[in-house]
Design a protein around this nucleic acid. Structure first.
Length: 416
RNA sequence: GCGGGUGUAGCUCAGUUGGUUAGAGCACCGGUUUGUGGUACCGGGGGUCGCGGGUUCAAGUCUCGUCACUCGCCCCA
């Protein structure tokens, strides 16, 4: 126990159960998003640091405190990706994919943020997400949200989560709003919470969703972002909401919903739960119309979301459905090769087949039982001489002799 | 980064006001049955009590530090 090697803080090993759940979720999102026209893609796990610094906001917490940044041996400043969107947009620019608009991508993989670990909050965590670029119309917003909604539905966590939606307006209007908000809040400097004082110069919007009672009272009379939205932002939100109504997707308009990343504008949304303690967001996203231009590409709008896979796993009660499978048990050395060949034959037929590596018949049956095999095939000297095998039903204990030539067909039949 | 809680076998946990060889259940291995498992009975392995200091004749039990997990703040997926 002492000096035992352990995983780095905030990282987890994905053992079998976790991996089954992980794969289950990836497959679900993959299937659903592909029905919406999204195609799989992956970008590197690390990028030049500027990819993130430029886009996420120089003052955001993620950039200032949470990035895993290092110099590689070529003295390049590299960062382990803290989120997926910046890398996807970079890849679109790098690969000249701007001709393929609209561009619809589905991705998943590890993300890294140096945070204090908690339940549902890790330093290496995994996200699955979609991005839709090149569509200005609100149809895109609705489609992307509908996709997220369906994912939650099919994972059976739609009942424990709620969709919150807001518009952040365009970047210009938001800037003016922030200036006014800061002006207003400056009058209450002595009453604001400590945290909010810090946020006042770093990220004033965050004060809007402060949990401090004093802050909440002050915010009540603060200027509202809604009043600063221009008519196109307002209309845009209206059209998104109409689209959601049309699809019967329920939502809560939350004008305090703010995102941690700077690149968002207009539609932002989060699927929120109260079942994960301090962590509330399970799927979050929004529009990022100026991101690509900001990164040096053409002026192409985008919208997308990302979900925390660990959070999805915590919320959904996935049960692994085990495929029926066979254990082959040789008795005595001379049947070994026959058994190995039979195992291969069954595997070629797509029948999961296992063979215990050692031990007597008793031990191997025990192992088969532990693997919860459905049937055991027993082959020993007697069987070889009689040209048959024993097929034992491990649930009922019944067993029968099957002619060796018929065994594969027999197994295929009983496994149905 | 800040504050609270926890840390004893692979897992879930006991461990009395500090007292000498640290326990249970489950799991694991073996035997009763050397060609028949899942039940039963018997036996076995496995812990320097997260780690490191300190107090004490004596520490799993008290204390400090540290690491990890956890809860809240923060942040967010």
């Amino acid at each position: 126990m002492n000096n035992k090697l352990q995983a780095v803080r905030g990282t987890h090993d994905h053992l079998h159960d976790l991996m089954y759940n992980y794969n289950y979720i990836i497959n679900k999102v993959s299937t659903i998003s592909s029905n919406y026209g999204f195609k799989p893609m992956a970008t590197p796990i690390f990028e030049f640091s500027k990819v993130f610094k430029k886009t996420l906001g120089e003052s955001s917490d993620i950039v200032t405190k949470e990035m895993y940044t290092f110099l590689d041996k070529g003295e390049e400043e590299i960062t382990l990706r803290p989120e997926g969107t910046a890398g996807i947009v970079r890849a679109i620019i790098s690969n000249g994919l701007i001709q393929e608009m609209p561009f619809k991508a589905f991705y998943h993989g590890p993300m890294f943020r140096y945070e204090r670990p908690q339940k549902g909050r890790l330093r290496q965590f995994h996200q699955v997400g979609i991005e839709l670029l090149g569509v200005e119309k609100e149809q895109a917003d609705v489609e992307v949200i509908a996709c997220a909604n369906q994912v939650l539905k099919e994972l059976n966590i739609n009942k424990s989560s709620k969709l919150h939606i807001n518009s952040l307006g365009n970047i210009h209007d938001r800037k003016i709003y922030i200036e006014d908000l800061v002006k207003y809040l400056n009058n209450y400097k002595n009453k604001l919470s400590k945290d909010s004082l810090i946020r006042l110069d770093k990220n004033p919007l965050r004060i809007l969703d402060s949990k401090s009672d004093d802050d909440i009272t002050i915010i009540k009379n603060a200027p509202k972002l809604r009043d600063y939205l221009d008519s196109s932002s307002k209309d845009s939100l209206e059209r998104v909401l109409e689209g959601l109504d049309n699809l019967n997707i329920k939502y809560i308009i939350n004008d305090k919903l703010v995102r941690g990343l700077d690149y968002y504008n207009n539609t932002t949304f989060e699927f929120i739960t109260d079942k994960l303690g301090a962590q509330s967001a399970i799927i979050a996203g929004g529009r990022y119309d100026k991101l690509m231009k900001q990164m040096g590409g053409p002026d192409i709008p985008g919208i997308g979301w990302a979900a925390g896979i660990e959070r999805l796993i915590l919320l959904s009660s996935i049960k692994e459905i085990k495929k029926k499978h066979i254990a082959i048990i040789p008795v005595g050395e001379e049947s070994n090769n026959i058994c190995i060949n039979l195992a291969q034959e069954l595997r070629n037929k797509n029948i999961p087949t296992d063979m215990a590596y050692s031990g007597n018949l008793k031990k191997r049956l025990k192992n088969a039982n532990k693997l919860s095999s459905n049937f055991a095939i027993i082959i020993g000297t007697d069987e070889i001489n009689n040209n048959n095998v024993i097929v034992r039903n491990l649930e009922t204990g019944e067993q029968e002799f099957i002619n060796f030539a018929d065994i594969v067909k027999h197994i295929e039949r009983i496994l149905l």
